[in-house]
Simulated assay, not measured.
Amino acid sequence: MIMHFQFKPLFENKNIPGWNFSFYHKKQRFTGVYHQTGKIEWTSNTPEQEEMEALKSQIHELMLYHVYE
C-alpha cells in the first residue's frame, strides 16, 4: 500500500506535462518522475519486481485522480 503520496510539476510552466512524485511503501521512500505518457522513471530505490506492477497501477490511479480530475 502506498502511503504519503505527493507530487509536483517537473517544470515551472505547469502547462508542460511531467511530475515528480514520492511515497512510502513498507517503510521505504520511493521517488520518481511520472511522464505524460504514463511512463514511470524511478529516481531513487526501485521497488522489488514482484511489487512493481501493483505499485505502478496505484501510481497511475493516483495521478489520474489528482492531475486529470
Rank of each mutant, 00 (worst) to 15 (best):
I2E: 08
M3C: 11
M3N: 13
H4Q: 12
L10G: 06
N13I: 05
K14Q: 12
K14C: 14
N15G: 08
P17I: 10
P17F: 12
G18V: 07
G18L: 00
W19S: 08
W19Y: 05
W19P: 02
N20C: 09
F21V: 04
F21P: 03
S22A: 10
S22W: 02
S22T: 04
Y24L: 13
Y24E: 14
H25F: 03
H25M: 02
K26S: 12
K26P: 08
Q28C: 00
R29S: 12
R29D: 08
T31I: 10
T31V: 02
T31G: 00
G32E: 02
G32L: 07
G32H: 06
Y34F: 09
H35N: 09
Q36D: 09
Q36G: 12
Q36P: 08
T37M: 01
T37Y: 00
G38F: 01
K39Y: 06
K39A: 03
K39S: 07
I40C: 09
I40F: 00
I40Y: 02
E41A: 05
W42L: 04
T43E: 07
T43D: 12
S44M: 05
S44E: 14
N45P: 00
T46W: 06
T46F: 04
P47H: 10
E48F: 09
E48R: 13
E48S: 11
E50H: 15
E50K: 15
E51Q: 12
E51I: 15
M52I: 12
M52D: 05
E53N: 11
E53D: 06
E53G: 15
A54C: 10
A54D: 14
L55D: 10
L55R: 13
Q58R: 09
Q58E: 15
I59H: 05
I59W: 04
I59C: 10
I59G: 03
H60G: 01
H60C: 04
E61S: 14
E61K: 15
E61A: 10
E61W: 09
M63G: 09
L64C: 03
Y65I: 01
Y65S: 05
H66V: 11
H66R: 09
V67L: 04
V67G: 09
Y68H: 11
Y68G: 02
E69C: 13
